[in-house]
């Protein structure tokens, strides 16, 4: 579904190569995890795929169901079915969470040529999904992420994901800043969305998130490349021995 080939990316403003030839394919129905030390390029990969500015693709390609992602605007990528759960969800004072979500859902439906969701249908859907994530009515009414705790922000990301029903979900260090309970809640939300037609790319530093969201494939990224891929046992190996051994072995 998501196919990344030989992706080379540098910073737009300076001559610094971040990704140095990433090859990765995520099949529908599968959960892939990317682990790696700080500065290995994990977050950059998620930003480049979702269309954040400031990066320049110098070589390679990324496609979603055969469609070139890199030539599209961020909102077009979203409409095509890509979703990024942010490591640091942005606070937007003055814009109600619900208003924002409804705008987003209907913008995507419109872009896909589908009919907009009526306010009754929207309310019904969001209430049910919010309940599963332990998000109360007050959190839905409040401005987007303003005054939310770390856990609330991440739950809100998953609520957005559940409402937008993307085909391909990228989770960028969703576990950062979460306590054990919040991590379980978020993971349950993600697991509920797992199905045969949907792919996941889970970016994380630590193995612990992968206890909750069980990956099919684990990749280790270092210095802008994927240096090793394997099953879930690879994550356990990182947990036990750190990255140094693996990186040495790969070199």
């Amino acid at each position: 579904m998501l196919k990344i080939e030989n992706l080379h990316v540098k910073l737009e403003e300076e001559d610094k190569q971040i990704l140095k030839g990433v090859d990765l394919t995520v099949e529908a129905g599968k959960v892939h995890a990317i682990m790696g030390p700080n500065g290995s390029g994990k977050s950059t990969l998620s930003y480049v795929l979702s269309g954040r500015g400031g990066y320049e693709v110098t070589e390679g390609s990324a496609t979603l169901d055969g469609i070139d992602l890199l030539g599209m605007e961020p909102e077009e990528r979203a409409a095509a079915g890509l979703f990024l759960a942010f490591q640091y969800p942005v606070e937007i004072p003055g814009v109600g969470n619900m208003t924002f979500l409804r705008t987003a859902v209907n913008a995507q439906r419109k872009a896909r040529g589908e009919e907009e969701l009526s306010s009754t249908d929207f309310l019904k859907t969001i209430r049910a999904k919010a309940k599963d994530l332990n998000i109360d009515a007050d959190m839905l009414k409040r401005p987007v992420n303003v005054g939310f705790s770390g856990g609330e922000k991440k739950r809100n990301e998953i609520l957005q994901m559940a409402m937008l029903e993307p085909r391909m979900c990228i989770l960028d260090e969703t576990d950062s800043g979460l306590d054990v309970d919040a991590m379980r809640l978020v993971s349950d939300g993600v697991n509920a969305l797992r199905d045969a037609g949907r792919g996941f790319l889970v970016i994380t530093h630590y193995q612990r998130l992968l206890d909750h969201i069980r990956p099919d494939v684990v990749h280790i990224m270092a210095d802008g490349r994927i240096v090793k891929s394997g099953g879930p046992e690879l994550a356990l190996e990182v947990e036990r021995n750190g990255y140094a051994d693996i990186l040495e072995g790969a070199a």
Binding site: S50, G51, R52, G53, E73, P74, E75, R77, A78, A79, F83, L84, F86, P89, V90, I92, P93, G94, V95, F100, T103, A104, V105, A107, Q108, A111, P143, Q160, L164
Partner: peptide
Amino acid sequence: FYLRSRGVSKRVATDLLVLSF
């Protein structure tokens, strides 16, 4: 970028941020 990554067009996203401001 956050708003656009959710599928909101640049124009509408700008309007929302103006409103927020």
